[in-house]
Design a protein around this nucleic acid. Structure first.
Length: 581
RNA sequence: CGGGGCGUAGCGCAGUCCGGUCAGCGCACCGCGUUUGGGACGCGGGGGUCGGAGGUUCAAAUCCUCUCGCCCCGACCA
């Protein structure tokens, strides 16, 4: 490709609205342009890299038996109503009506459509197992897109769906994806870890998320270096400390004026935080049929810990949780700052298991300026649910081995879910077994966002001067920089390299060497060839890897072979990253 | 949805408090000439109804009201 004719431009200045390295560099180097919040156009470079990523995904998913299909982005709402997700999912799913007034949605994932296809196509166990996938646009009206391609509203996703007759089959396909995903990320050059994850709106029984560890990540992960336990903070388990257990003393009201936080309470009464119970009020939204009802949720956790909203929501099957307003708290007779689970009516009380087994805690008295000592679960109050609802933190003990956990941030680049029969059951996607008995097909779903993956790779591979693409997803292999008065020779080199099957970006522009070199660094193609009169006089051209500083002079006649060798070497290095997991 | 910030030429910005040569600067772009191995120089030039709509005023980028959009933090979310 001749650069003089390319539909792009590089920017000298950092775009004002970019914060992260990948965002700044992808815009500056002319890969992407923003159209709206979380909506981007891909320019030629990004389009080419994206295709390479997608082809890597095709290779790996085909390898485990995937068949590529393409499902529509615009869906009639009926099928989403059948699974109830039309009602369960909030405004991140965009809805509209067609000309006849029929409800339509923009697909944010495709479980429904797959299940619909399955009920139309699959009838017998003989057809299973099966794996289908597509690479398609998704629309999710995220309330807060950010960081360029890291978090967008419109994006392309590779999503595959496994179809099985039994749990074993699902396990097999899940494992196959588990490895295939590591292969995909390795081939793209991106280091990732797989962590246990919440199933979220997908439902199902098990999920892993593939995380690119980076401070720009929005997810917090808990990692055990000793045994390898890794989980998203949303669900991370930990080994809870032994509760303080003594014989129950009698309730005692103590005056605690202006003591509203646990910190103040512990200081005022001279007790440890672990001897206190903390009240956290949330408003929960619950789906009952097609109706949403909201209820106040009173979560009780130990004073030294933090509430984990995901665990709480899962424990009570809430669709949504948000902090309650003061009026909502007062409406049930509780007093913010001095709240107590004792003596409340019409409130969903959820107690952390550690609280349930602790004795003689300090809690609020539901009376302005007073707390209660020696509060005991069971004797003094009951709960609707007792569950693990507190958040794991760095330093807490690993659930597997007891070693201290550490925290890290991560960007979720892929996920795999064991869905089970949630969708197939709802849609009646059944097959007949050997005995002629009907069962719902067992599904798994597996997704990778290709644009986010591209952005993470940019995030991982760059320096002060620009991007440094891994050869496998670089838009071109070679950046051919022609300096002054060498047009004929450079044209010839361009032709020779191209004929040899190399992808060459040919900088044939009328620019000064500095501009060309800087653009080459910014764009970040792996191999740079400089053709200049100076070295050409000796019959040489200069070859340099973007990832290394060293330039080498190569005789013109050896150039094609040399570059093919370099490309091979870079590709081999990438392939060496693939490991069995 | 809550908090904060910002919309002036393709990009980055100044000007807004205090209304009146404030339609400006740098980069980019076009022409001519010189230059040519790490973001060249000179001369000449093109481009903006100051996000939008109302209003106040003799006069609005500037003041007021409404509105749209974008970014960041939080909430939320795969």
């Amino acid at each position: 490709m001749k650069m003089s004719k390319m539909f792009f431009r590089t920017l000298r200045e950092v775009p004002a609205d970019a914060e992260t390295a990948s965002h700044k560099l992808l815009v500056r180097s002319g890969f992407i342009q923003q159209l709206g919040a979380g909506i981007y156009s891909l320019l030629p470079f990004a389009k080419r890299s994206m295709e390479k990523i997608e082809n890597i995904m095709r290779e790996e998913i085909d390898q485990i038996g995937g068949q590529e299909i393409l499902m529509p982005v615009v869906n009639p709402a009926e099928v989403w109503k059948e699974t109830n997700r039309y009602y369960e999912i909030g405004s991140e799913m965009s809805r509209f009506q067609d000309r006849k007034g029929g409800d339509m949605v923009l697909a944010m994932t495709h479980e429904e459509i797959v299940a619909d296809l399955v009920r139309k196509i699959v009838q017998s166990y003989r057809q299973l197992p099966m794996l289908v996938y597509h690479i398609q646009t998704k629309w999710r009206d995220d309330p807060r897109p950010r960081a360029g391609l890291i978090r967008v509203r419109e994006f392309t996703m590779k999503d595959s769906y496994s179809l099985d007759v039994d749990q074993e089959g699902l396990d097999t396909q899940y494992k196959a994806h588990y490895q295939a995903y590591f292969n995909i990320f390795a081939k793209c050059g991106l280091p990732v870890v797989a962590v246990l994850a919440d199933v979220g709106m997908m439902g199902g029984t098990m999920a892993h998320e593939y995380m690119y560890l980076s401070p720009i990540g929005e997810d917090t992960l808990l990692i055990c270096d000793s045994c390898g336990y890794m989980a998203n903070r949303q669900i991370a388990l930990f080994d809870k400390p032994e509760p303080i257990h003594q014989s129950a003393l009698s309730l005692e009201e103590v005056e605690t004026p202006n003591v509203k936080t646990i910190e103040e309470l512990a200081n005022f009464l001279n007790v440890k935080k672990i001897e206190t119970a903390k009240a956290v009020f949330m408003m929960g939204t619950f789906t009952e049929g097609q109706e949403d009802v909201t209820k106040l949720v009173f979560a009780v956790i130990r004073g030294d810990m933090e509430l984990n909203e995901t665990k709480l929501a899962n424990a009570i099957k809430a669709k949504e949780l948000r902090p309650a307003h003061d009026e909502e708290i007062e409406a049930v007779g509780a007093v913010a700052g001095y709240a107590s689970p004792i003596g409340l009516k019409d409130v969903l009380v959820v107690v952390d298991e550690l609280i349930a087994s602790s004795s003689n805690l300090v809690a609020g008295a539901n009376k302005e300026g007073f707390h209660l000592k020696n509060v005991n679960y069971g004797r003094d109050y009951q709960a609707s649910v007792v569950a693990d609802i507190v958040a794991a933190e760095a330093g807490f003990a690993c659930i597997e081995c007891g070693s201290p956990l550490k925290e890290s941030r991560g960007v979720e680049v892929g996920n795999i879910f064991k869905l089970g029969t949630k969708y197939t059951e709802a849609l009646g996607a059944n097959f007949l077994d050997q005995n002629g008995k009907s069962h719902p097909v067992i599904m798994g779903s597996y997704g990778i966002g290709s644009g986010r993956l591209l952005a993470c790779i940019a995030e991982e591979y760059h320096d002060d001067n620009g991007l440094i693409w891994p050869i496998s997803i670089a838009p071109y292999h070679v950046h051919l920089v022609a300096l002054r008065d060498v047009k004929e020779q450079a044209d010839q080199i361009y032709a020779n390299l191209s004929k040899a099957g190399l992808e060459v970006l040919y900088d044939d522009r009328e620019e000064t060497p500095g501009v060309k070199f800087n653009d080459a660094d910014l764009i970040g193609l792996p191999i740079r060839i400089t053709v200049g009169a100076r070295s050409l006089k000796e019959g040489n051209v200069e070859v340099k890897l973007r990832s290394e500083g060293e330039r080498r002079l190569i005789p013109l006649e050896d150039l094609v072979g040399e570059v093919i060798g370099l490309k091979q070497k870079l590709e081999d290095e990438i392939m060496d990253q693939i490991v069995e997991n």
